[in-house]
Write a protein that binds this DNA or RNA. Structure first.
Lengths: 200, 200
DNA sequence: GCATTTGTTTATCGTACGCTAAACAATTAG
DNA sequence: CTAATTGTTTAGCGTACGATAAACAAATGC
């Protein structure tokens, strides 16, 4: 069977993912990843192909792990609108570090630099979030928390834009209170027309 | 007096700015800029210092030229809410190229990579836009186009987040119709409460 | 034990990077 | 014309990059 592995692929991918997330693709060198993982370059190449493919693996992992978990935690029927609120705030209310930004967002900006495959992965990831937003909105309509006049599809798209925008501002060092206010203002008004309609 | 210059600083900065805008700081090499400008590396260094300082010069130019022009064109009292709408759409309705993204947005993401000074410049640029949004909102309130219940400051901050978010989605290749719908949905609802209140 | 298979490490390869010293070119002052 | 000043070009420095071939290590099957 040959020599057994001395490391767990998943563990290495997790470490690599964090590094890409903080520094980006271009600014992360193979030598950085050597120090980070304790592995030698040749081992990394053997296990994951070249740098671009390793990045794509890390990006997939990010979507399947971080994003999917965030969706599963916050965007569930019981949570209603507060679920959407906490989905947003979970991006910047992180411990212990202030935040690491979003790999999807950062890659969308850096995509031209990376492999072309990264682009498609970003699109898919964003679609996943958008669909979760849309489902949550519809669930809120079913429960009566918000009225029917709200168009779930286009509102979900606005939430995606807000999501991306927040994560950009996060990288430029805006404060938590700013974010809280943005989210409250945005969500309140996005779903206000329906609420007002309901009051009539 | 010595030998006269063979190029115009401003022209070179403009070319360089476009390149940084499309490819980012890290992915743009001095050799790229040599080919682009027709100048030799040593001339660039003599005229603009090192790569980071050249980038900062280009970033300043972007804020003073592109952003300031965009504000001056769209965010003027006469334009009202439509001014805000056209401010947004001017970021993606560009000719002939589809778009180049926003250097402020891209730098916010890439900032850790670049010089620390770039960070402050991004912040300042975003503040400039936010203040213009706020002034435009207040102007709309003065004219009676929207009601007073809208909080100009926090709504302007939401618009900034939307602006950043749109420019991220722009880089991930979303379509113009998507953007139009996002802007309509967002602006309609952000300023709807006041409108409804007015109707009562 | 020995051949085989698989994983890791060592030692680079070729290239591209940011940057700069020194040579060269073109102008002005006297 | 000469000296001085300033701009441009040439040539290349040292370093870091992504990637890989070859040597070495540790397990298996027979």
């Amino acid at each position: 069977m040959g020599r057994p592995k001395t490391f767990e692929d998943a563990e290495v991918v997790a470490q690599v993912m964090h590094c890409f997330r903080e520094r980006g693709y271009g600014a992360t060198s193979i030598r950085d990843l050597e120090k980070l993982t304790g592995l030698k370059a040749a081992s990394l190449y053997k296990a994951f192909g070249n740098k671009a493919s390793l990045f794509c693996i890390a990006l997939d992992r990010y979507t399947e792990e971080v994003i999917a978990r965030r969706i599963a935690t916050h965007l569930v029927a019981d949570n209603g609108l507060d679920g959407i609120r906490s989905f947003f705030s979970s991006t910047y209310r992180t411990e212990p570090k202030p935040t690491q930004g979003c790999l999807l967002t950062n890659t969308a900006i850096e995509a031209p630099v990376v492999d072309g495959n990264a682009h498609k992965r970003v699109e898919r990831g964003l679609i996943e979030i958008r669909e979760a937003f849309e489902a949550q909105i519809e669930s809120c309509q079913d429960s009566g928390e918000i009225g029917l006049p709200v168009d779930a599809a286009s509102t979900a798209q606005v939430l995606i834009v807000l999501y991306e925008g927040l994560l950009v501002l996060l990288r430029s060092g805006a404060s938590v209170v700013t974010f809280d206010r943005v989210i409250d203002t945005a969500i309140d008004s996005l779903f206000a027309p329906a609420t007002l309609k309901k009051e009539r």
